[in-house]
Amino acid sequence: MLEHYISLATKAIFIENILLAYFLGMCSFLAISKRVDTSIGLGFAVTVVLTITAPANWAIHHYFLRDGALSWAGLPTVNLSYLNFIVFIAVIAAMVQLVEMILDRFSEKLYHNLGIFLPLIAVNCSILGGSLFLVEREYTFIESTVFGFGSGLGFFLAIASMSSIRYKLRYSNVPSKLKGLGITMLLTGLLSMAFMAFSGIDL
């Protein structure tokens, strides 16, 4: 059983990296990866929020929204799954707010480091995408927690490596029109190609 979870996590981190294979979270990836320290902060914040929101949204989908989920309330024919999007985004926004408040209360330092990213994260595609994927792939509770954590870690890995590449890039002579967004896209392509080398690994 444990092997299954490890394999799922490896898949989420390396083989089907949420950023490099599914393009989720590109906006903040491109905007933040200019600096190494802020990238690590954002990567960490995304990991935390994804690990919390994935199981939370799983529970809400499983016990309230999916087809026949309300049978415990005596409503076996009700299918609320069309409310998925609205409820998920509300849960994510609420969770982000909650994490922010908890950090503010208990860890001043962490709050100062992560605080500015938390509002950004509510509209990060990778968070909502993670929740939608787990519904579509019909994960169980533990699987979705592992998947959320793995995806977050994958995002962390991608943004940390990208920011280090861009840091080195400051001293290279890039054509002026390719500077900034253009070269970052090309580099992301190469990075994604490198990550594709992991495909086929099966634990």
Binding site: F23, L186, G189
Partner: peptide, 10 residues
């Protein structure tokens, strides 16, 4: 996916 990044970059 790498194809998409590279085409968009170009």
């Amino acid at each position: 996916s790498p194809g998409a990044f590279i085409i968009l970059g170009l």
